[in-house]
C-alpha cells in the first residue's frame, strides 16, 4: 500500500490520531503565533497607509484572512460531513463537529472587522450588500450545524443530521466568492488573485499572505485541539485514553 494512503488509514484510528495530535499541536500553535506576530508587525507597522483609505485599510490584515478561512473551513467541514455520512468514520464525525465552531469564529471575525472597516470607508457599519449578506448566511449555517448536532442526545446521530445541513449549505460558498462579480456590490472586487496580477502593492501583499498562512496553521492547531479533546471525552472509558492521560502527567 502507498505510504501516504497507509498513513491516512492509520490516522482514522483514535489512539493514533490522539498521539499524532498531541505531538504536532504545539508546532502548529507556535508557528501560527510566530507568523501572526511577523504578519501583524509588517501589516500594522511597516506597511504604508493606503492613499485612499488611510490607516483603516490595515483592518484587512485580520478581515481578509478570516474571510478566506470562513469559506475554506466550511469546505473542510462539508468534506468531513460527507465522509461521516458515507463511510461512518467516527473520527470524521468529530472533525466535522470540531470545524463548525472554528469556522463560526472566523465568520464572526470577518463580519465584525468588516463593520469596523465599513464605517470609515463607506460611512456605514452595515449594508445589505450581496457579499455581506451571503457571509451572514454562512454564519447562520455554522450556527445551524452546531445547534442541530447538539439537539440530539446521541452525538453520532447529531453529527450525521448536521452533516446533511452542511452539505446543502455548500451552495453558499461559491455564492460568497462570486457575489462581487455576479451582482453590483458596494464591497470591492478581488484584489488578490492566484492567477494573474494582484492589484495590491507587494509591501501590502506580503503581510497579508503571511497572515493567511498564520490563520491556516491556527486552524490546524485549533482543529487538533478540539478533536483530540472530543475524542478523549468520547473514549474516556477505554484503556488507551487512561494510559495517554497518565503518560502525559
Amino acid at each position: 500500500m502507498n505510504p501516504v494512503w497507509r498513513w491516512f488509514h492509520q490516522l482514522g484510528s483514535p489512539p493514533y490520531f490522539y498521539r499524532f495530535a498531541t505531538r504536532w499541536m504545539p508546532w502548529f500553535g507556535i508557528s501560527a503565533l510566530l507568523l501572526t506576530v511577523i504578519g501583524m508587525y509588517l501589516g500594522f507597522v511597516e506597511a504604508p497607509a493606503d492613499y485612499l483609505q488611510g490607516d483603516s485599510f490595515r483592518i484587512m490584515y485580520i478581515h481578509v484572512p478570516a474571510a478566506w478561512m470562513s469559506m475554506f473551513i466550511y469546505g473542510v467541514m462539508a468534506l468531513n460531513g460527507a465522509i461521516a455520512l458515507i463511510w461512518r468514520i467516527k473520527l470524521s464525525e468529530l472533525l466535522f463537529l470540531s470545524c463548525a465552531p472554528i469556522g463560526a469564529m472566523f465568520t464572526a471575525i470577518t463580519l465584525i472587522t468588516g463593520m469596523f472597516w465599513g464605517k470609515p470607508t463607506w460611512g456605514a457599519y452595515w449594508v445589505w450588500d450581496a457579499r455581506l449578506t451571503s457571509e451572514l448566511v454562512l454564519l447562520f449555517l455554522y450556527f445551524g450545524v452546531i445547534g442541530l448536532a447538539s439537539a440530539y442526545d446521541d452525538l453520532r446521530q447529531g453529527a450525521r443530521a448536521a452533516a446533511v445541513l452542511a452539505l446543502v449549505g455548500v451552495v453558499n460558498v461559491p455564492i460568497i466568492h462570486f457575489s462581487v462579480k455576479w451582482w453590483n456590490t458596494l464591497h470591492q472586487g478581488e484584489t488578490v488573485r492566484i492567477m494573474g496580477k494582484s492589484s495590491i502593492d507587494s509591501s501590502m501583499l506580503w503581510p497579508l499572505l503571511i497572515m493567511a498562512l498564520a490563520t491556516k496553521l491556527y486552524f490546524v492547531f485549533a482543529l487538533l485541539l478540539r478533536t483530540r479533546s472530543a475524542l478523549a471525552e468520547q473514549e474516556r472509558g477505554k484503556q488507551w485514553v487512561r494510559e495517554a492521560m497518565v503518560e502525559a502527567a
Partner: peptide, 23 residues
C-alpha cells in the same frame, strides 16, 4: 481609524480565546 483598528484587534483576541479555552 486607529480606534476601529484597535476594536478589530480586541474583538479578534476575545473570539480566539473563546474558541480555544473551552476545549
Amino acid at each position: 481609524h486607529w480606534g476601529y483598528i484597535y476594536a478589530s484587534l480586541a474583538v479578534t483576541v476575545v473570539l480566539v480565546l473563546a474558541d480555544l479555552l473551552p476545549p
